[in-house]
């Protein structure tokens, strides 16, 4: 299994590289870009560690706006300031926008085709698998979480149940379970500081 460095040390050399990386990343993202972003930015480019990726993504969920686009903004900003943020945003949006508008303009001609429907089903199933695999890979970073592994595992299970079974609104989940996780981690961090 490929391993990821504990802390990321690589960075893009130019705005052009930043733009190109996010364009390539966005164009690979069928049914969501997140799994591809984790693969490219963490495992291949090494611009972020697993912990940083998880942290940036968690944070981007609390802000309005598309999560992966918010991640791109924050990462671009970190490397090149606001020019980097805009470059990453443009890289993420420009090519997909062009493609989807061409599709929208020519839609209807192929919508009813049986092979097209089958292909969309196949791609949808793979998208579901990609999401699960990414979650499993990121879960490895919970071992060093200050909240403790048992508490983390309980929070993961509670979140899955709240979201997939109970279908609670995201805001409640982030506020309730996220708040609980925050309180736990805060308590443990302060306890560790007092012992030092």
């Amino acid at each position: 299994m490929p391993s990821s460095p504990a802390a990321a040390h690589h960075r893009p050399h130019s705005l052009g590289e930043l733009f190109l990386t996010f364009t390539v990343l966005a164009l690979q993202g069928f049914g969501g870009v997140l799994a591809v972003a984790q693969r490219e930015l963490v495992e291949r480019k090494g611009w972020l560690s697993r912990e940083e990726f998880l942290d940036t993504y968690s944070f981007s969920q609390l802000l309005p706006g598309p999560n992966v686009v918010n991640m791109a903004l924050m990462l671009g900003d970190r490397f090149f300031g606001w020019r980097g943020a805009l470059t990453a945003l443009a890289g993420m949006m420009a090519a997909p926008l062009l493609i989807v508008l061409v599709l929208a303009a020519s839609y209807g001609r192929f919508a009813e085709h049986e092979m097209v429907a089958g292909a969309l089903r196949g791609m949808g199933a793979v998208a579901a698998g990609l999401m699960v695999a990414m979650a499993v890979r990121l879960a490895a970073s919970l071992r060093s979480n200050p909240a403790g592994m048992v508490a983390c595992a309980a929070l993961v299970v509670a979140t899955v149940v709240a979201m997939a079974v109970l279908r609670l609104p995201l805001l409640w989940i982030l506020g309730g379970l996220g708040g609980l996780g925050w309180a736990l981690a805060h308590w443990q961090l302060r306890r560790a500081e007092r012992q030092r």
């Binding site: 699960v132 990414m134 990121l138 993961v156 899955v160 996780g181 309180a183």
Partner: peptide, 14 residues
């Protein structure tokens, strides 16, 4: 960020 990490992973699984 530490407290939200497990919730994020749960959301991805969901």
């Amino acid at each position: 960020s530490a407290g939200l990490a497990p919730v994020t992973i749960g959301l991805l699984l969901a």
